[in-house]
């Protein structure tokens, strides 16, 4: 079986899929290997992770008033 050489474009295509996914296929092993030696792809990987982190940390707090309005609407005020 011929193992294709992985280039940056392949990594860009598959890096996202592999984030948080299984990394044990032959292809992913090759991608990991490439990632270890390619600063450019590492930077891309970091930027995707950072994007996710930003959205994860962006939460809004529910106010007490908002909670009260909800309970009133449902007829469940204490």
């Amino acid at each position: 079986m011929k193992i294709e050489k992985i280039n940056c474009n392949d990594v860009m295509d598959h890096i996202c899929e592999s984030l948080g996914e299984e990394l044990d296929s032959q292809r992913c092993v090759e991608i990991k290997k490439h990632l270890n030696d390619c600063p450019n792809c590492q930077k891309y990987f970091t930027s995707v992770e950072k994007t996710i982190e930003f959205y994860k940390k962006y939460n809004i707090k529910m106010t007490e008033e908002c909670h009260k309005r909800l309970m009133k609407k449902l007829g469940l005020e204490d």
């Binding site: 940056c8 860009m12 450019n40 930077k43 891309y44 970091t46 930027s47 950072k50 930003f54």
Partner: peptide
């Protein structure tokens, strides 16, 4: 969307509390 840029800027220095 997946066309690779030639040089990718480094994001690791962007602070997380930027949120």
């Amino acid at each position: 969307e997946n066309t690779a840029e030639t040089v990718i800027p480094d994001w690791s220095s962007l602070p997380s509390d930027i949120v």
